[in-house]
Every structure is written in structure tokens, then in C-alpha cells.
């Protein structure tokens, strides 16, 4: 298989399969969560559950003081990583064109060197978090194979994307193919691992906010 054939496969069959598994996986996980069900709360509502739910989705972006005091390092690293990842995925022009071809939505991108800088920040954030994980005894003890796996499948698309943009080590078509393949791996694993927090965080935050809102207490 030449690098061109490899690239054609990951852009065609490979990507189609990955997207189908990704879409099926997300719907399945949502159905699973929804089907857990909750008994109706028969108590009198003391506040609006929905407003509190939506508010909590947003205000949990800011850590509360107790958590900040205990884990400032990991909060900063994770913040840089998540913001960087968001920018890299959604503001790199070739990525926007890809998303447009799937869902038909387009928006303006950022100049490539800016996205490139964010990619570096994102990778540094990920490396910092990995360092933290393997140097803190308690965290290391709690870490499972899955934690390292999801770290790796998140890091690989960033690394291969960085190499592809700077055209380092391999031929550009090979690099592009490796980058797309690593993203396909991420897409396939995302719904079935801890990475599903990329969409379940909305449900979890909403639910936490909603039960507090219903009882009329701060979430």
C-alpha cells in the first residue's frame, strides 16, 4: 500500500466507518443514560430546575475556591488543554471545511500560525497532565489502563497534526494519512471511554444544577 492509497483509504472508507461508529456510539450512550430514568420528585418545587440546570452547565467552567486551592496545577493545565483543543479542532480552516462537508455549517477560521501556537499549548497541557498523573502517588494508584489509553488517543491527533502542518519526519501525504487515522481512532473510542465526557458533561452538569434548583438551593 502506497502512502497515497493509505491516504485515500483513511479519507474514504476509514472516515466513513469512524463517523458511523461515532454517531451510533453517541446515540447509544445517550439512550443508555436516559433509560436509567429517575422517579418523579413528588415534593413541591422550590425553584426552577431548568434554569438552574442551564446555569450550572456554564458556572462549572469556573472552579470553586476549595478545588482551586487543592489542585491549581491540574486546573490550569486542563484549562489550557481544553481551550487549546477547542481552538485547534474548530478554528483550523481545513477542519472547518471537513465539518462543513458533514453537517453543512461553516464559520471563519483563524490564521494557521495562531492555531499552530494553540496546538503547542494543548500538547504542553496534555504532557503536564500526564506528568502529574505519573508523579502523584495517589493519582498514579487510581489510574487505569483506560486513563493512559484516552490520553494517548487524544495526544496522537495533535502530534500528527503538528507534524503534518510542519511537514516533519514523513512525506506530507503519509503525515496527513496518519493524522486522519489517529482522529478516526479517537472518534471510534470516544463514545465508549471516559472521553464521552465531551458530551455527557452537559447532562451531568444540567442534572446536578436541576436537582439543586428544584430544591431551591445553590448548585
Amino acid at each position: 500500500m502506497t502512502s497515497t492509497e493509505f491516504l485515500l483509504w483513511v479519507k474514504g472508507t476509514g472516515f466513513t466507518l469512524a463517523i458511523a461508529v461515532f454517531a451510533a456510539g453517541i446515540v447509544l450512550r445517550l439512550a443508555e443514560i436516559w433509560s436509567l430514568g429517575r422517579k418523579p420528585d413528588l415534593a413541591e418545587a422550590k425553584g426552577n430546575a431548568n434554569t438552574a440546570g442551564v446555569r450550572t452547565i456554564f458556572n462549572r467552567f469556573i472552579p470553586d475556591k476549595g478545588i482551586w486551592d487543592r489542585s491549581a496545577f491540574i486546573i490550569i493545565a486542563a484549562w489550557f488543554f481544553h481551550v487549546g483543543l477547542f481552538v485547534v479542532i474548530f478554528f483550523f480552516v481545513p477542519h472547518i471545511l471537513l465539518i462543513d462537508s458533514i453537517i453543512g455549517l461553516q464559520w471563519p477560521g483563524l490564521p494557521t500560525p495562531i492555531v499552530d501556537a494553540f496546538a503547542v499549548i494543548t500538547m504542553v497541557g496534555l504532557l503536564a497532565m500526564l506528568f502529574h498523573r505519573i508523579t502523584q502517588p495517589v493519582k498514579k494508584y487510581l489510574s487505569t489502563f483506560e486513563d493512559y489509553l484516552v490520553w494517548a488517543v487524544t495526544f496522537l491527533p495533535l502530534l500528527t497534526g503538528y507534524l503534518a502542518y510542519h511537514r516533519l519526519l514523513f512525506s506530507p501525504d503519509m503525515l496527513l494519512a496518519m493524522h486522519i487515522l489517529s482522529v478516526e481512532l479517537l472518534l471510534v473510542l470516544l463514545p465508549f471511554t471516559k472521553l464521552s465526557h465531551s458530551f455527557t458533561f452537559l447532562l451531568a452538569r444540567w442534572y446536578n444544577g436541576a436537582i439543586s434548583g428544584f430544591r431551591g438551593v445553590q448548585s
Partner: peptide
Amino acid sequence: SRPTGQTGKNAVYGV
């Protein structure tokens, strides 16, 4: 960067 397959259609099958 656009995929060559019928991604949208297959995403629907996936759903």
C-alpha cells in the same frame, strides 16, 4: 481535508 466517502449519509445510518 474533505472526506471522499458519503460521510453524512453514513452518519445517519450510524444514528
